[in-house]
């Protein structure tokens, strides 16, 4: 199979997994959504397994791990969010786990759900809604509107544009990175089927995937911090 055919297969495949005969296929469920269901199920099982039988005294290794990991993840997000926006910490951590988990699915030879634009749009939309909601909650509706004219009235249009640019850049960055990584991985697999893809998948699937999840969360947290100040 040549490169062109591979790219066509990767990029132009039919994404619909479950076809519903309602409203002309509007409610069709994509493969990516099914994959996120799987991710959710895996995470749920993992969480329930890790947190089952937690004890106050003499915690087992499992409990120590889950406590440490939870506090570590929250610490990462909380450090960026700062004291004032600490209430959004848990939700941002959830986004971090979701994106990180989705990106890591490439490790198992599955096309990551974040390679579907719909998923990244959804996550970016949630993020930007939360940023603006945090701003409104912290400053009030009036203060939030006034915030557009800061630091100067001249850049108000820019600030309004940012409302659209921020989620767009968030979603495109994530989508593009994962798409690029997946395409390159597929090409490498096509060229050398063994050993080499393993090495590259370390970078593209683990490192790049986690870095992108961190960047997404970092920027969202930064926006929230900026919004509540």
């Amino acid at each position: 199979m040549d490169i062109k055919g591979k790219l066509h297969e990767l990029l132009l495949e039919d994404k619909v997994a479950i076809h519903l005969n309602i409203a002309n296929g509007f409610f069709d469920v994509n493969k990516s959504v099914v994959l996120t269901w799987i991710l959710l199920a895996v995470l749920a099982v993992l969480i329930l397994f890790l947190t089952s039988g937690m004890r106050v005294h003499q915690p087992g290794k499992r409990q120590l791990f889950v406590e440490y990991a939870t506090q570590w993840l929250r610490g990462i997000v909380g450090g960026i969010l700062g004291e004032e926006a600490i209430g959004y910490r848990d939700f941002i951590t959830t986004i971090l786990v979701f994106i990180g988990g989705a990106n890591l699915m490439g490790l198992f030879g599955i096309v990551p759900p974040t390679m579907d634009l719909n998923v990244t749009i959804a996550v970016a939309a949630v993020a930007i809604v939360m940023v603006e909601a945090a701003g409104i909650r912290a400053l009030g509706l009036k203060g939030w509107f006034k915030g557009f004219a800061k630091p100067m009235a001249v850049i108000t249009p820019m600030n309004i544009l940012e409302l659209a640019i921020r989620p767009l850049s968030l979603c495109m960055r994530l989508f593009g990175n994962i798409l690029g990584a997946t395409v390159i991985m597929e090409l490498i697999r096509m060229a050398v089927p063994i050993v080499v893809p393993l090495v590259f998948s370390l970078y593209f699937d683990i490192f790049d995937g986690l870095i992108q999840a961190y960047v997404f969360v970092f920027l969202t947290s930064l926006y929230i911090r900026e919004a509540v100040e």
Binding site: S169, M172, R173, N177, L179, G180, I211, Y214, V215
Partner: peptide, 20 residues
């Protein structure tokens, strides 16, 4: 540096997405 690189890389990624 890693964070900055990931952010700077984004422009290249945008170009890549547009090309695709």
């Amino acid at each position: 540096l890693l964070l900055g690189c990931a952010l700077a890389e984004a422009t290249a990624i945008y170009g890549f997405v547009v090309a695709i």
